[in-house]
Design a protein around this nucleic acid. Structure first.
Length: 429
RNA sequence: GGAGAGGUGGCUGAGUGGUCGAAAGCGGCACCCUGCUAAGGUGUUAUACGGGUAACUGUAUCGAGGGUUCGAAUCCCUCUCUCUCCGCCA
């Protein structure tokens, strides 16, 4: 959520900023809802004050055994007016939050103007991205390779669950598991993260705090019969919600959390896209990185987080590039987002494998997550940063495609071999 | 799933209808005292929102939501979470 006071005072600037995210701010509506709410608040508070004073007076009179009926009547009168005001206030607050919770985060000035991913700007390529060499080999799609090895299946998965699910067998399943472990190990050993094992089912509030709700309910799987649970679309949700209602001392920050978790997305609106393979599944594993930091350090912290994610790609020797998302492609809650895109030889294209964002105080305001500023001695909202480090399914797909040899086998990257009983390649089943 | 107990400030914990936003202790902070340390003394110390340059001030909050009452931490109802015992279970 953005700061309503800031919005009120900078409404023109904010509104033109949000327009870059294709959000049209209804300025008049906001000003009206905002001032209605404020007026109702002060009106009800005034009445409550009167009521409190009179009630106290009644208490004093009762002690002295004096008559209180006149005052009681008066309070009763106030109560009936107050009730109306309070009802109006509840409605007004609902309107206000409905509106505020649907306003996206303000964009960082560095975000380039643009409509879609076509307008994203490439920052740099990895050192090993000699793609002419790779792409000329005519490598097959990872799902084809996996199938011909007899280690990947899509059809049976469909009959078990439906579309956008898959089965991995044998050493391919093992490689998938190895990848998750390798990523988490790297982050906890080299990057000072605390590993967290998180709930995969979360409640409505948690999703509201991180910004998936109320706006993006369609993208989530909801569990209805037992309780109002949602399956997490990313470990960002439980990890970030660890900070809810916290007030940190400055010494406690930064906090780095990482978690390997399964993620669930409905992929509504992406019918027909990436229907084969591991790229777009209803269920996938991902290693998530989350930072809680002070506002001054959030910019630097995002860069650090990106380096942590890049480290995995570098260790796996996968070609990739770093992209700064344009305004139209930047997510609802983010102020700035960098994607890491890995080279997929079969598609002759870079595909997103990590998305790293600074959410500034947007999530913190919803979470009520603050820290005590040592200098100002005031409680200020923290900043939250997160990114994937990395999406495991997509990384596996990238490895299959980039590491296949002439025989259709998959060479196992050096760093993963210790996790695979020192196996060197995956051969046909 | 069955039976019971309980949720009060950073923590421990008192408070069963009226200056209770809440005693006391611990912790934190500030100052004082002692040559240093240890100990001691005094004061201060919740959060959100609103008004005010500020000192300050108003409202709400004692798990959440309703209700009773002129007045609720305290009484009633519903929900929720935690703990203990039994059962079941990876």
């Amino acid at each position: 959520m953005i700061d309503s006071k800031f919005l009120r005072q900078n409404i023109e600037n904010v509104s033109s900023n949000l327009l870059k995210k294709n959000y049209e701010l209804d300025k008049e509506y906001f000003l009206k809802v905002d001032s209605d709410r404020k007026n109702l608040i002060s009106e009800t508070e005034e009445l409550q004050n009167k009521k409190n004073l009179l009630s106290k007076e009644i208490g004093v009179l009762k002690l002295k055994k004096l008559d209180t009926s006149t005052l009681s009547k008066e309070v009763e009168n106030i109560n009936s007016v107050l009730k109306n005001k309070q009802d109006a206030l509840i409605l007004s607050e609902e309107k206000y939050y409905d509106f505020m919770l649907n306003i996206p985060n303000i964009l960082d000035d560095r975000v380039p103007l643009g409509k879609s991913s076509d307008d994203n700007s490439v920052i740099n390529y990895s050192d090993n991205d000699d793609l002419t060499k790779i792409s000329n080999k005519g490598f097959s799609d990872h799902s084809v390779v996996g199938k011909s090895l007899g280690l990947y299946d899509h059809d049976i998965a469909s009959s078990i669950s439906g579309s956008r699910f898959s089965l991995l067998f044998g050493s391919l399943a093992q490689l998938h598991r190895a990848l998750g472990s390798f990523m988490v190990d790297t982050h906890i050993n080299s990057h000072k993260y605390t590993e967290v094992n998180v709930p995969l089912l979360v409640n409505n509030d948690s999703l509201t705090c991180t910004g998936q709700l109320p706006k993006f309910k369609d993208d989530l799987f909801e569990i209805k019969n037992k309780k109002d649970f949602f399956l997490i679309p990313t470990a960002e949700v439980p990890l970030t919600n660890i900070f809810q209602n916290k007030i940190f001392s400055e010494e406690e920050l930064p906090i780095y959390y990482t978690s390997l978790s399964t993620c669930f997305r409905s992929e509504a609106g992406s019918y027909g896209k990436d229907t084969k393979g591991l790229i777009r599944q209803h269920q996938f594993d991902k290693v998530e990185l989350v930072h809680a930091v002070t506002p001054e350090s959030s910019d630097e912290s995002l860069n650090l987080l990106i380096k942590h994610a890049e480290k995995i790609l570098n260790l796996l020797e996968l070609p990739y590039r770093k992209v700064l998302l344009c305004s139209g492609d930047t997510g609802f809650s983010a102020s700035i987002t960098y994607d890491l895109e890995v080279w997929m030889p079969s598609q002759k294209a870079y595909r997103e494998i990590s998305s790293c964002s600074n959410f500034t105080d947007f999530q913190a305001r919803r979470l009520h997550a603050k820290y005590k500023n040592k200098v100002s001695k005031k409680k200020e909202y923290i900043h939250t940063i997160n990114g994937s480090g990395l999406a495991v399914g997509r990384t596996l797909a990238a490895i299959i495609e980039n590491y296949q040899n002439e025989n259709g086998e998959i060479e196992i990257p050096d760093v993963l071999r210790p996790y695979m009983n020192n196996m060197k390649r995956i051969e046909s089943n």
